[in-house]
Simulated assay, not measured.
Amino acid sequence: MGADFDLVQAGIRTEKNIAIFQMTVSGKAGRSRPAPVGKLAGSDVFSYVWPTTIDPYEVGFERASGILAMAVTAHPDFDDTPLFDENGDGKPDNDGNLWHSHWVVLQKNPACGADALAVVDIPAGARPRLPKTWPGLPILIDSPGWQPSLQAGTVEVRVPFDDIGVVGAAGFDGVTAGLRVNASVHAPLLCVVDVFKVASGDLSLPGKPER
């Protein structure tokens, strides 16, 4: 993958009740996006990701349901922000190729490969606790509408918290990665298939937010 995913630095800092997720790459952030395949099944997602030790409960999911991560993503073959019209054309369902933010909950899933992560699936018939802006996909994902900024070599997204203390006490890491929708659009729905770079080198979540 090119310099736009060559991770140089990742950080989180807090200002009042806002957590600012920031990442620097050696190239132009957001320059590359996946090639469209024309359908959801088998389509790709490019992402800038901050895995954290924050309990998913703090943003609306079940307690201890996996690794909570903030992700800035782009994917031309589907739109998963149904409440927001990012390109301003009056249609909220055609914006997937624009960079946008998500909360996702990750767990290791052997169906994605040895030690590979996947966004946690919601089993058929299950009714887990979900955020109000959950986009309706059968996975633990939230589409809160916080617009990321991608300028020069920097990706940044500002996220409000009711209790900013949960951020200050957290550990985190930085990852640039590619994900892929399962060809059968079935469990697992969304696997991490390419890890381009990890800030810590081993996904140990050693980072500490700055105030």
Rank of each mutant, 00 (worst) to 15 (best):
E62I: 01
E62W: 03
A64E: 15
A64L: 12
A64S: 14
S65D: 06
G66M: 04
I67T: 14
I67P: 04
L68N: 00
L68S: 00
L68Y: 00
A69H: 05
A69Q: 05
M70A: 10
V72N: 08
A74M: 03
A74D: 02
A74E: 02
H75T: 09
H75K: 04
P76C: 13
D77F: 00
F78T: 02
D79S: 03
D79E: 07
D80I: 03
D80H: 01
L83S: 11
D85Q: 06
E86K: 09
E86P: 01
N87L: 04
N87S: 06
D89F: 01
D89W: 01
K91G: 00
K91L: 02
K91D: 13
D93Q: 11
D93K: 08
D93S: 08
N94F: 03
D95I: 01
D95N: 07
N97G: 00
W99L: 01
W99S: 01
H100K: 04
S101H: 07
W103H: 06
W103M: 01
V104I: 15
L106Y: 03
L106I: 00
Q107I: 00
K108Y: 04
K108N: 10
P110W: 01
C112S: 13
C112T: 11
G113Q: 09
G113Y: 06
G113S: 07
A114P: 08
A114C: 09
D115M: 12
D115C: 08
A116R: 14
A116E: 10
A116W: 04
L117H: 10
L117V: 04
V119D: 06
V120F: 11
V120A: 14
D121V: 10
D121H: 09
I122K: 11
I122R: 11
I122G: 12
P123A: 08
A126F: 14
A126V: 14
R127L: 07
R129Q: 10
R129C: 01
L130W: 05
P131F: 03
P131Y: 02
K132Y: 05
K132D: 13
K132M: 05
K132W: 04
T133A: 13
T133F: 09
G136H: 06
G136V: 09
G136L: 10
L137I: 08
L137C: 02
S143N: 11
P144D: 08
P144C: 07
G145H: 10
W146R: 09
W146N: 14
Q147I: 13
Q147E: 12
Q147V: 13
P148R: 05
S149N: 12
L150W: 13
Q151I: 12
Q151S: 15
Q151G: 08
Q151N: 13
A152W: 12
A152K: 15
G153A: 14
T154I: 15
T154L: 12
V159K: 02
P160F: 09
